[in-house]
Nucleic acid binder design. Structure first.
Lengths: 340, 340
DNA sequence: GTGAAAGCGCTAACAG
DNA sequence: CTGTTAGCGCTTTCAC
């Protein structure tokens, strides 16, 4: 157990008040140089570190920011998760906040998650959740400042990547390169909520593609299990790709990079050349740093570290009692690779 | 601000003591069913959540575990970091601990890191650091339970992957496949401390290779900058690879997977086929899940999630005041891929 | 069966 | 310039 304020005070023969004031630089003008130095010296000698718990009890600020996500751990390996967490860490560090990482509670244990989050230790929370999760309502009923990222949650100010703009860029890119029939690979979970990032990507792509005179067929990217971290080719997709020239899609857009990567691998297996036979584009840009002979994916780079930095900034403003916009869209840009 | 114990007590017209006892299930035999139910109901209604700070102040347990690493953020993208963090998260969750993620302090700001860590909130800390960093001594002078991972730190109980065993397996694997001359790609930072994982890998490989009659030449994998996340071919390496058959190394072992991936990419660029002209092996196994047409690297899979789980377990034992072994080695195994 | 009182380490209001 | 007092929310000892 580290030294307490009282011990430091005892050592220099002053009261806790004085020591507290001096140590926080609050009494810089009230106390003589000599006193301040004695206090500082004693604190250093005893390796005094203020007890954050006690300080909070008094002051109502913990300087802790939390991040909660309900997404499973299967995806914890991927670059997206890594970018988000690393970004949060940096953003917190820049603001001298401690960073508490929540998550990995099974669905039934919403209570545990809620209890952990609410046990009075956080100044604010950044969440990555689906808008319909029950926990959302519970958190919203609270006075805890919360900011959502990646998917919009109507209850909270949300910071998202430019999903619609990105999709439009992709559609335009493909149209410009002469594609007329394109396959769109959607996420396995059906979802119709415009809040959700993948829905925005999907709809915006479909609309822009139509506008540009491309026809769009759709398929579902089915994640088989948490262990087998890979998406097979569906029979629907196999069907489309087996159609004769003139009917076969010449391009495929995928809701995220991972689905795109898997599609490319599956194509190669069955002798479909990418991009010659099928152009493939993704969405994310997270894995652009994979350092090897892998094909460079044509994709939208969403700047996740910027998303979390912005989210943290908004959170701070909320903590300070200020108004913030309910939806903030962080620009994304197209990265032309080898696959389309 | 959530409801306090006192408010719950006021609501049911009982004392805080009673409420506290009931809510923690401590008075299950002393209080009648009716009382307990009234308390529970009131707590639920007010959405009472115990204040962890206050509880700690009294009880000296925060149920928070920290993770600190001093490694830069350039590598934050990589699978290693991601596995460690996700593993810590799961391990903490399993033990109902909160997980605080430290790191990203510039070297000069050791004080900030130390202050953050020591502000009296952690039950224990897992660190990923180099043994000679100044912060090590400061933490060691403390009564805070600390466990090191990946690299051994003599001051703390350490949990590491089987670096030596892994390297021996790789040497044996290459020898069995007929290689006689092999290049070992070491990490840029020179280091001689046997505590350090990459030193163990290097030495064990060199020794086992010699024992098996292979000759070993060495080169340095120079990371050019934090931004350019890639390792070029050095002139030394280019020289080795340009030597005539019979002198040229036929295999390259790299201190980690990343260095191996980059080497492979560089080889392809200059027309050296992998594995035909040069067999390449790595060490880590973190990126085995990259889902695309990328070459599957032959490497040692170090089970990092197991490492962190073990570390967390030891930490708990230390927190509970028990003795723990100073060095724990978690088994690793060879994964045969396409590159050797 | 239940409650009063003390104290964890800190800060803020108010005296001197 | 410095100290006293009170209290943040909780648990624990002891008394009723």
């Amino acid at each position: 157990m580290p030294a307490s304020l009282k011990e430091v005070a005892a050592k220099v023969g002053l009261s806790d008040t004085t020591v507290s004031l001096v140590l926080r630089g609050k009494g810089d003008h009230r106390f003589p140089q000599a006193t301040r130095e004695r206090v500082l010296a004693a604190a250093r000698e005893l390796d005094y570190q203020p007890n954050a718990g006690a300080r909070y009890l008094r002051g109502q600020r913990t300087n802790m920011i939390g991040f909660f996500t309900s997404v499973g751990l299967a995806t914890a390996h991927d670059a997206f998760f890594s970018e988000i967490v690393a970004g949060m860490r940096v953003a917190c560090s820049e603001r001298s906040k401690k960073f508490v990482l929540f998550g990995h509670y099974s669905q039934e244990r919403d209570d545990d998650a809620y209890a952990d989050i609410m046990s009075g230790q956080l100044d604010g929370l950044v969440v990555l959740m689906q808008p319909h999760e029950p926990l959302v309502k519970r958190l919203a009923a609270t006075s805890l400042p919360v900011v959502a990222i990646a998917d919009v949650i109507p209850e909270f100010p949300s910071v998202v990547a430019d999903d619609r703009g990105g999709s439009r860029m992709l559609a335009e890119y493909l149209a410009q390169r002469g594609h007329r029939r394109v396959l769109y690979r959607v996420h396995a979970e059906n979802e119709t909520d415009e809040c959700v990032s993948r829905v925005r990507r999907h709809r915006a792509f479909r609309e822009e593609a139509s506008r540009l005179g491309m026809s769009v067929v759709e398929s579902v990217a089915q994640y088989p299990s948490a262990e087998e971290y890979y998406i097979q080719l569906s029979s629907v997709e196999a069907g489309y790709l087996a159609e004769p020239d003139g009917q076969r899609p010449t391009a495929a857009a995928c809701w995220d990079d991972f689905a795109a990567r898997c599609l490319i691998a599956e194509c190669r297996k069955i002798g479909i050349r990418v991009p010659e036979d099928l152009a493939v584009v993704g969405f994310d840009g997270c894995d652009s740093r994979i350092p090897d002979d892998a094909t460079r994916l044509t994709t939208i780079r969403a700047d996740w570290s910027n998303v979390v930095r912005t989210a943290t900034e908004l959170l701070q403003r909320m903590i300070d009692g200020n108004e913030v916009p309910m939806e903030t869209i962080v620009p994304a840009h197209l990265v032309a690779g080898d696959t389309a």
